[in-house]
Design a protein around this nucleic acid. Sequence first.
DNA 1: CAAATTACTTCGTGCCACGAACAATCACAA
DNA 2: TTGTGATTGTTCGTGGCACGAAGTAATTTG
Lengths: 143, 143
Amino acid sequence: MKQTLGAASGLVRLTFLVQNLYAEVGRGCDLTVAQAQMLCALTEESLGMAELSGVLGLERSSLTGLVDRAEHRGLVVREGDPRDRRVVKVTLTAAGADAVHRFHQQLTERLEQLLEDLPATERERFARSLGRLVADVPAVFTD
Amino acid sequence: MKQTLGAASGLVRLTFLVQNLYAEVGRGCDLTVAQAQMLCALTEESLGMAELSGVLGLERSSLTGLVDRAEHRGLVVREGDPRDRRVVKVTLTAAGADAVHRFHQQLTERLEQLLEDLPATERERFARSLGRLVADVPAVFTD
DNA sequence: CAAATTACTTCGTGCCACGAACAATCACAA
DNA sequence: TTGTGATTGTTCGTGGCACGAAGTAATTTG
């Protein structure tokens, strides 16, 4: 008699699980959750503070400190944008790119490992459903 | 040509999405994420600090402050356990039970609403897969 | 009964997030 | 051109969160 867990509860628990994995892998790469998230958002391209705060869903004022600490640790640099002298572009340094690469790789591995609990076709279907649900979530993580 | 998102990326984005919902609903109930999580863990039964830290995945020292603040706000009370005078049981107050009930209800609603993006049978399957993936996650959220 | 274990707390540190207030820059309209 | 209003970032103050090391009290174990 296996009681079926409600879908909502399943979602919350999955989130809890992934969140913990995220934090754990982050610790292994010497990155906090917020830092890892930011670096991931920057892997594709440099972003201005406002753009970045939009992607991450943070207030601009919150971001300032986050970037400060990351910059201080040499993961990221601030650069002025000649097109618009108000904007400050945030760009990964080599070290930052390296760290986020390791992080991304390890996290992906752990997550795929987690998905191995599902048989192949089910996993396939699950991934497709996932894709639909997150269709309009900002690119906080990419393949 | 809709590019299929990798399963790992899907998981991370879903987590991001649910996490934000969680925070948003929490704010509406005047609860921080950590507080809501703790209250949810206590809805079933009172727990000792050690048990609670186990469920939430926190250090005991982190929990002390969390309970302090929640207690100070009247959401929770500490009670000694006569069986073992070392343990401190944490129990919801009426206000705490009320808050977590509202939170739970609203979050569940929002999540089910989110799942409406999937057709019925797919949603059904998705929920079943979820159940398997989170089989051994502590009861941080229940139906 | 002594020693090891367990349950919690305290303290110090650092990170995170918010909102209000502010300076610089830009866009646009009169 | 010169306001005027919006946008971009930053600073500052506040509060919450999480950790580890160290300490106290109660329990268990040998």
